[in-house]
Design a binder for these strands. Structure first.
Lengths: 230, 230
DNA sequence: CTCACTTTGTGCTCTCGTTCACAAGCGCTT
DNA sequence: AAGCGCTTGTGAACGAGAGCACAAAGTGAG
């Protein structure tokens, strides 16, 4: 009896699905706050901005948590999705780099409420080290490894200038961090087992600019659009 | 002679390719600063962290700008990619919501250097309106439409709380904004012709948590590793 | 001029993800 | 208890993207 087919377990959740689970979780939270106790895939999909078939398939990877003819129990589904994402525990996080963005993240409450706890702030600017930001005292860069090991930090957030991002990343990884969220505009090279995700607002704007430009050019020269495409 | 095959024109650039062009552009910029004048697809791909075949295919959608046996001219390619992304002009941007994140973005220099100009800041908190941030005076929310229309803003950045994000978005769109970058943790509903991209750090962290959790659970049960696929 | 070498551009295959469409399953009503 | 209407879960078709592998096209040496 092969189990290759069955991926209901922990094994085969597609990456694309994982990326959407947090969105579902957020939508479920909102619905819960509104007092909704049961929701159909159609309604939840609308709240999350996706196709309902896709939503059902996504949820089916976690197991059969819905009731046919009824829908999904909001609280129960919140629990199951949270568990799948590993949010039933609090993940300690360190932020390296306390420029404007680092400050903003340190003060942002959105993390704490969702299974994350910012446990340490690190910077190498003497003017910033020792100051208190968001209830934490900024540590010097020398103490990076010590902080990571002592607090058992698994997730590091990099908000440094691009020039030092790779160096900081290497040190985080060497100290035991397994996942990195990179806000610096640079490509990070990491070992196989380390997960990196990046956030780059400049890139997002450039993608928007591309679409804007296309709109403009087709508006201005409808006749020549196919020839010049300017 | 059919040209259905030929998508070298402006028409058919895959979305996945568009999303990578800014990364290539950044890598090219770095290479240019280092004095490199010609680069092979292999080298550029390494700098951008992608497969070289993918890079070549991506660039081929823009046209044949390389020289076989030699590589790509850095400056020329920078120009071509910039042009394709619509970065040869400066796009005026408005930021709505000046909390910690809005402040950080307003002070971030990375945009300005890449074809974007933050032209206005808007908020509805009387304590913030009228103050100067990053060289601009914060405008009251009432003036949102006026600001957008006067400055010809095409791109809006939303850094408000989730509760008002949809409302702000609607007003931006009504005033003529065609592209929105949303930092608020909410799903925005917009008309067909409007482009939305979202940045949500909380979601990124949750995706990382998922992978961390998987690592941890397979560490705990090393004997089951081959079953779980650690 | 020819040949050897380098690197681009792309046809093709394979994998991953999306969407459709419907059978299976559940609750409610009669 | 039987039937009806609603909603889930999923097989299957479809589409987009990744990557291999190689022909085409350029350079430079002899």
């Amino acid at each position: 009896m092969r189990d290759g087919q069955r991926r209901t377990g922990r094994q085969g959740i597609p990456e694309a699905t994982v990326a959407r689970l947090p969105i579902y979780l957020r939508a479920l939270g909102t619905l819960g706050d509104e007092g909704v106790s049961t929701v159909s895939s159609e309604a939840l999909a609308a709240a999350a901005g996706v196709n309902s078939a896709k939503l059902r398939k996504d949820l089916s990877y976690l197991g059969s948590y819905g009731t046919r003819g009824v829908g999904y129990d909001v609280d129960y589904l919140v629990y199951q999705v949270s568990r799948e994402l590993g949010l039933t525990q609090d993940w300690p996080v360190v932020i390296v780099g306390l420029g404007h963005l680092g400050h903003a993240l340190a003060n942002y409450g959105g993390f704490t409420t969702r299974g994350f706890a910012i446990r340490a702030l690190v910077d190498n600017d003497p003017a910033v080290v020792g100051t208190e930001v968001g209830g934490l005292v900024v540590q010097p860069l020398d103490r990076l490894e010590q902080v990571v090991e002592t607090l058992g930090v698994a997730i590091g957030v990099i908000t440094t200038p691009a020039a030092v991002a790779q160096d900081v990343c290497d040190r985080l990884v060497a100290a035991g961090v397994g996942s990195v969220l990179n806000f610096a505009p640079s490509v990070l090279v990491v070992p196989e087992h380390v997960e990196v995700r990046k956030v780059d607002m400049s890139i997002e704007l450039q993608i928007l600019a591309f679409h804007e430009q296309r709109k403009v050019s087709s508006d201005l020269t409808p006749d020549l659009a196919k020839v010049v495409g300017k």
